[in-house]
Write a protein that binds this DNA or RNA. Structure first.
Ligand SMILES: [Mn+2]
Ligand SMILES: [Mn+2]
Ligand SMILES: [Zn+2]
Ligand SMILES: [Zn+2]
Lengths: 149, 149
DNA sequence: AGTGAATTTGAAATTCATTATCATCATAGG
DNA sequence: CCTATGATGATAATGAATTTCAAATTCACT
């Protein structure tokens, strides 16, 4: 964890940047915080530690992490971007449109089929996004918990 | 085509709406125009026929079509929404991040696997979005056409 | 520690797609 | 024609994200 922060710092310096307190705090909180976080959520979390961090810095830091491939930018269509650590392996998402819960899954067979589809179209894929929207177990219509409206 | 417009008009009336010239023009141009269109593009196309149509009406109409399930709202992550006819069967997209071209594909095996994944998670899917980003044939790095940077 | 160039910061201003407002217009039924 | 109500288009408002900018911080070099 500390070594991760060091590694990132190093990379920033290599790019011609300088270390900074606020940014380091944002990065640390980002990797400790629950995933699929919005900038607003992350800003609040950071401010618990350092009240004076501006949201502009959070926006900047999260974009920087995405540029360095340490974070992934997500968009579940609700009007604000979310971010997740990019340290874990690639995965796709199930998004509950009732409670907003996000579940992750891996399905190598889907990945393979995507490669095939791309190849069939002479297309060189660099990334993809597969989001499945619907209702999670708790919010499912007809579920016992929801029987009485 | 005319029958489509009539059918939509009928549905709007059933919802408690009235017919209107501007809206009818937007709808007709929408179904004649190339797909994956932005509101700005659609507004320009409509104004070739009727200079006085306001973009607010185009926004409203396209949202209405989406609500009535005649149109689908798309978001390829470039900051503006796109719309396509929802008369054709479901399909997913290949998006070139160089030239912006969009290609469509159907892969029933992917659809099936998605159902399975959802079921495994006790999730009731209502829709999904699969976008593959990369470089199309023309924009592919290493392509003859791009050999000289 | 001091100096100075370069980067970063936080607040505020700006951007830009989209939505809401509202006075006016069009539609449709009696 | 009348009237009720929905629709329009110009404009204002919204809100997430970006940019601006003066002040603060970092850091290599004395
Ligand atoms: Mn995830
Ligand atoms: Mn399409
Ligand atoms: Zn749920
Ligand atoms: Zn291309």
């Amino acid at each position: 964890m500390d070594s991760l922060l060091q590694r990132i710092d190093q990379e920033i310096v290599a790019i011609g940047g300088k270390r900074s307190r606020s940014r380091a705090q944002v990065i640390e909180v980002f990797f400790r915080t629950g995933t699929h976080v919005t900038v607003e959520e992350l800003t609040h979390a950071v401010r618990k530690r350092n009240r004076s961090v501006g949201s502009a810095t959070v926006y900047r830091t999260v974009k920087l992490l995405a540029r360095l491939d340490y974070a992934k930018e997500l968009d579940f269509g609700d009007g604000l971007k979310r971010y997740e650590s990019n340290l874990e392996a690639h995965h796709d998402h199930l998004v509950c449109q009732e409670c907003g819960a996000v579940f992750e899954f891996k399905e190598p067979r889907i990945e393979t089929l995507q490669e095939q589809v791309a190849k069939q179209h002479g297309f060189f894929p660099t990334m993809h996004r597969l989001d499945i929207y619907g209702y999670c177990r708790k919010c499912a219509p007809g579920d016992k918990r929801n029987r009485d409206k």
